[in-house]
Amino acid sequence: MTVRNRDFYKGIIKKMLTERLTKYEEDGYKYSLQYNSCTNSYCLYYTCPGEKHWDGCAAVEASEV
């Protein structure tokens, strides 16, 4: 699994919001975006190529996107 920085995940979230996507796939990685209205943040779940379970999660406040 490749370690990504916070700006990478913000970029994926921005792309998904612009295109109004809840699921997205790029370079074999699968992403699923959810919004939490209680914390006003986006949660980006992702899985690595070839994996069937979620490998991780990146949480970003809506104000950062």
Rank of each mutant, 00 (worst) to 15 (best):
M1F: 15
T2M: 03
T2L: 02
T2H: 05
T2S: 03
V3W: 15
V3D: 12
R4C: 11
R6V: 11
R6I: 05
D7I: 06
F8W: 15
F8K: 09
F8M: 06
Y9C: 10
Y9I: 03
K10D: 09
K10P: 01
G11K: 03
G11M: 13
I12F: 04
I12Q: 06
I13E: 11
I13A: 03
I13M: 02
I13D: 07
K15R: 13
K15F: 05
M16V: 14
T18W: 07
E19R: 11
E19D: 14
E19A: 04
R20Y: 14
L21D: 07
L21N: 06
L21S: 08
L21F: 10
T22W: 14
K23S: 00
K23Y: 06
Y24A: 13
Y24V: 12
Y24E: 09
E25Q: 12
E25Y: 01
E26P: 09
E26K: 13
D27F: 15
D27V: 11
D27R: 14
G28H: 13
G28A: 04
Y29H: 00
K30A: 14
K30V: 10
Y31T: 00
Y31V: 10
Y31L: 05
S32L: 07
S32I: 10
Y35T: 08
Y35G: 13
N36V: 09
S37K: 14
S37Y: 07
S37I: 09
S37T: 11
C38V: 12
T39I: 06
N40I: 01
N40Y: 09
Y42A: 11
C43E: 15
C43D: 08
C43P: 01
C43Y: 12
C43N: 15
L44F: 04
L44P: 05
Y45C: 08
Y45A: 06
Y45K: 08
Y45Q: 03
Y46A: 01
Y46F: 15
T47P: 01
T47N: 03
P49Q: 11
P49G: 09
G50F: 15
G50M: 11
G50W: 12
E51P: 03
E51Y: 10
E51F: 14
K52T: 03
K52M: 00
H53S: 10
H53C: 03
H53Y: 12
W54D: 05
D55R: 01
G56K: 00
C57Y: 06
A59K: 10
A59F: 08
A59M: 02
V60N: 00
V60W: 09
E61A: 07
E61F: 05
A62P: 11
E64R: 04
E64N: 07
V65S: 02
V65Q: 02
